[in-house]
Design a protein around this nucleic acid. Sequence first.
RNA 1: GCGCCCGUAGCUCAAUUGGAUAGAGUGCCUGACUACGGAUCAGGAGGUUGGGGGUUCGAGUCCUCCCGGGCGCGCCA
Length: 580
Amino acid sequence: MNIFSDFRKQIIDVIEGLSSDGSLPEGLNLDRVAVDVPRDAAFGDLSTNAAMVLAKPAGMKPRDLAELLTGKLADAEGVSTAEIAGPGFINVRLDDDLWRRCLGTVLQTGKAFGDSDIGGGAPVNVEFVSANPTGPLHIGHARGSVFGDVLAALLRKAGYAVTREYYINDAGAQVDVLARSAHLRYREALGEAIGQIPEGLYPGEYMKAVGAALAERDGDRWQESLESEWLPVVRSFAIDTMMDLVRDDLAALGITFDVFTSERGLVEQGRVDTVLDGLEARGLIYTGTLEPPKGKKPDDWEPRPQTLFKATEFGDEVDRPLKKSDGSWTYFASDIAYHQDKHARGFDTQIDVWGADHGGYVKRMKAATKAVTGGAADLDVKICQIVKLLDKGEPVKMSKRAGTFVTLRDLIDEVGPGVVRFIMLTRSNDAPLDFDLTKVTEQSRDNPVFYVQYAHARCHSVARMAADAFPDLDADQTADLGLLTDEAELALIKLLAQWPRVIEGAAQAHEPHRIAYYLYELAAAFHGLWTKGKEQTELRFIVESDRAQTHARLAMVSGVRTVIASGLELMGVEPLEELR
RNA sequence: GCGCCCGUAGCUCAAUUGGAUAGAGUGCCUGACUACGGAUCAGGAGGUUGGGGGUUCGAGUCCUCCCGGGCGCGCCA
């Protein structure tokens, strides 16, 4: 039950009715007709801009059209009042019973309340994390990981067929460095003194285990052999080990993927060649020389002919190189093949979640995707800004040597997965985020995780107390919701009714942080009502002298608990029933 | 120099995708709470949404030009 979309249908019906009886022209475009919640509750429960957006095409003044619509709407079912305001807004108040019925729906459907079918089962591919398999995940990865995972969950709840995907960059020079680092540790594991890790190799302690495991598996087989012999083997082994590490770290955050795609796999299957041959056949690839960037000329710049993709034909600023000087593909070339591959697998809607440092690549990737799918695939790239790690307001110095933790795993161990996940969504993805280790575990209002969890725990607390006062109370569904008449109670119920709308809006905008903000707002309304009951005893949830009233209020509290739990679970955060 | 993101209350950030009198937290000021579970709640002050111009019924949001910050800028992903 989505009151807002239901009401929009009512308005559309009214407009179409007026069209068919000649009061309005036929065939009006109704796309821009919106139903909103007014900023100020004094304006009513709902408002619509219908009269304003249709005035011009209908050839009427907005207020006259509003007049016409209000006349019909006032008689519509469930509408208590409809009036015109401002330049032509129509403000509507609905019968309180309609809202109470919505609470009834919450109680009946439970956590499925808010599920939507706006996705229509359309396939969506969400690609996120995709960290290079060269080491454990760090804090910078945490944000994109959570963002992508919750966005995927959100889209699923909104009715899309979502695939969570991880692209393994296992074909570039970096994994060769990884292999050499692993080989060194392998020799170390076999008893060689390796001394200092040479510049350019990965020095991390985590590489020791890789070397040891390889020695365990293969003995001294690669100890004296040529690099050309051992490199592919060691590389493959190291990548697998690193990916296990990455999977473990993600699992600790509650994240799993449906698909892992290997860049090397695409290259070895010849997919890159195929896709780029196709572009070449269309005249979109040529050999040319790029201008140096103005104002910031690299020291070693020299003009050089390169194999270029005509990205400028698809909205990019300059054409982009596809081949390295050794003749191998650039990562961009394989990325083109990868996005084509996603399209070939049936994904017309693709979402990539990237870090802030990749912002400069959005245009070329969109251009390439457009080119390679003939414009059929829509790519949305979500950029996550940096996370600043703080402790008591002071920046935490990231030094591996000093022992200050930097890995994702350490962060999870320190504050718990739920806290990490929630905090990562307390900002819009394109705003930088402060993660204060002290604040996020504080029990205060300015720690949103606590504040929302506390509201949820309070709901459970009420239920426990009620079980003492009325041990034999029936299920929520049998309560007489008509007894919920206080303004604050109805306001709370109206907020619950917004949940499906929040889901749809957040899903369509690809903005999972809206869930966190909504939950905070809902928690605030609930805490407010709680305290109101403290001051006016007749408003308490449990009224010992009034069994029916208590029953109704417990049902309302159940509704709040259900929606908060539903939202937290959507975010991958476990709802707590007690706070120590 | 160019591109992308950003600029909103002292500070950190929202703003129903173009809607009405721009909202929360924090900080400051005032009050409520000896218990359905204390960690809360109610109120006050605080704004020319960086600046100018434009688009229209209507702009924090879209276009344009400046100012300021972050990221990026040919064979790293």
